[in-house]
Design a protein around this nucleic acid. Sequence first.
DNA 1: GATGAATGAGGATTCATTCAT
DNA 2: TATGAATGAATCCTCATTCAT
Lengths: 207, 207, 207, 207
Amino acid sequence: MDSRVPHQPKYQRRKEDRPQEITEAAFEVFAEKGYAAARVEEVAQRAGVSKGLTYLYFKTKEELFKAVVKSVVVRRVDALVEAVDTTELSSEEFIRGPLLEFMKHVPNSPIAIVIKLLIAEGARHPDLVDYYWENVVSKGLTAISRFIDRGVERGEFRKTAVNDLPQVVLAPMMLSMIWRLIFAKRELDTDKLMETQIDMLLAWIKA
Amino acid sequence: MDSRVPHQPKYQRRKEDRPQEITEAAFEVFAEKGYAAARVEEVAQRAGVSKGLTYLYFKTKEELFKAVVKSVVVRRVDALVEAVDTTELSSEEFIRGPLLEFMKHVPNSPIAIVIKLLIAEGARHPDLVDYYWENVVSKGLTAISRFIDRGVERGEFRKTAVNDLPQVVLAPMMLSMIWRLIFAKRELDTDKLMETQIDMLLAWIKA
Amino acid sequence: MDSRVPHQPKYQRRKEDRPQEITEAAFEVFAEKGYAAARVEEVAQRAGVSKGLTYLYFKTKEELFKAVVKSVVVRRVDALVEAVDTTELSSEEFIRGPLLEFMKHVPNSPIAIVIKLLIAEGARHPDLVDYYWENVVSKGLTAISRFIDRGVERGEFRKTAVNDLPQVVLAPMMLSMIWRLIFAKRELDTDKLMETQIDMLLAWIKA
Amino acid sequence: MDSRVPHQPKYQRRKEDRPQEITEAAFEVFAEKGYAAARVEEVAQRAGVSKGLTYLYFKTKEELFKAVVKSVVVRRVDALVEAVDTTELSSEEFIRGPLLEFMKHVPNSPIAIVIKLLIAEGARHPDLVDYYWENVVSKGLTAISRFIDRGVERGEFRKTAVNDLPQVVLAPMMLSMIWRLIFAKRELDTDKLMETQIDMLLAWIKA
DNA sequence: GATGAATGAGGATTCATTCAT
DNA sequence: TATGAATGAATCCTCATTCAT
């Protein structure tokens, strides 16, 4: 009717992009509503497709959910792992630099949402948890452990319980994520929190 | 427990306790299934009452949910707060003793379940989050802050960022909780994790 | 509004009668539409109940279907079987009397509808077929065989292939049923058909 | 068959044959699933064509269904009718020979499947029933009637109710068809059944 | 002509909530 | 109070049909 608005055919064929578009819309809806309260129809609407098309690409709501979770397994973890192995920085510089940067980033990234979904639904989707463990958590923890071990070998760090508990490094990141998810509006300087942990940690393990 | 009444539902049928019995059953079901997937009928069955009676005490499923969350606001926090104010231990002794004990306890307690529920449902129930904030989190954080401040006043601690970030103390507790919720079967020595944090922390803040 | 029409509460509790009412309505709908085209909602409407109540008594549409089929397994077959065993009539009198009467009745009875449903859906519900076989067909055929054998023992009949093929007796009944189901409006004197078969049969087997 | 084109769909892709290929595939699917449960997509797959092409030849699923039913109206009936009119056999020889052969064949032929489909769906497709009546049933019955009449004229047969009830001849064929459709695995010597009927019949009508 | 991606109405099933008893 | 039969809105999923390519 309005020539300034070019006619959008309702019927578009874009096989290539559909799955990702749907996955992205589903990510939003699952993030907002949780698995059970998310409606497939809303996912379809946000993706700009029909309900039926969603089912063409994902056989069930559950399969869509799994696809969403897996799609967020970012390359970033791999990037961190590689950085750990190839960095020319001193151990302290690396921790205060790239590692801290990574930690600060996570609570604002989709990873936080996925963690939320895993907390809520993990018990009903053990295979998803396995997947996340193997592709994200396990890798990350191993990298951190290896890095601290290397610091010890190099004489930069002394050997402490942290070598076997890389979770110590990540604990404030975890708290920051949860904080954002629950208490979003209550202020918390998450960056400062992580910086403080790093300060404490380095003071503790430095040779 | 009462051998004269075998094969009875878990909870006894004493009028005055009914709401609590229902609340306890509901806690279990919400914990296992999450809010949306929990069925009121199952709650009633576990409580040994009829579906209708549940609605006599709780107008809606949502109200029941809120009652559940609130019911878990343990006295323990108040106990901790009071202990902080009345202890005759040195600051370090208190931290390594009662505070650490408290932290180790939480991830195994119903509080962890409530946190899980808040993570999943909090966004849809801001008043619940407010309630939890005011009655649990805020109190606990304030108590810890005050306690560390007092340590500084007494000359036991130096002033650090931790004074304004009591979350530093609680971060490993948080990670332990989440770990249990998601990765239950993967081993993590959560006690050791929290002990290490306390070691690091005390080394960091001791005068 | 109209005081002459007594107020019908929409909410009636009649636990005792519901299953049968639903089953009867379902019989009608399945008979008219077939299994797949029958809508559970229509069944509920005809039964005067809500859709949900149907699912309270029958977990799935398929279970409802099976209940319908089984509900039609009339006592009549048992009655025939007993009549065969206790009659004081001569064999010919019994065949021309009660047996012919039974055969004439079947094509107009619900049994015909059930046969129709079994023809259409039997392949997808082998347990239903088994059930019908054991409770209806097998019993009826055995009774007829036994009866003819007895006629031979008594010297009324000679031994023929019919002793082992009681289906010979029932064939016109079967054709009549199918005829009614498909060609309802084309006239066929089904009674005459069955009478003729009996005439032929008796002429054939009489000693 | 053609070793140069292995792993091809069942039906070859020759333009002119397409409708028939689709019809044949559809016959299979309708036979297995019934009308409602048959999916057009499966028909297309079995025919080795796309879903869209099916709709090019058949406007709707219903039209496809009708085409299937009509396609099975075998020439065989016409052949029988002609045989009846031109045979040089005596009436008894013809009945015991070609007619009995025809009857034995039908329960194993596609006609049985069509009968099944008509039983299930006939009520919703009266025009199909009309078609079948006119082109198959009516012709066949008329031929049989005429043949028996001729036997009477020739002095081979006496006049009986069978002259106006050719269904007597076909009843065991009908029962055999239904038996196969429902009780496939339960043994029944259908050939013997039809032979016995013919024996009985001839004994009954022979002059 | 062919394809198969895309649509959307339709129908089975669930479950919070109500209410006659 | 207490029960659980009854309701019906909500939601997943299917599949005949359309249409851009």
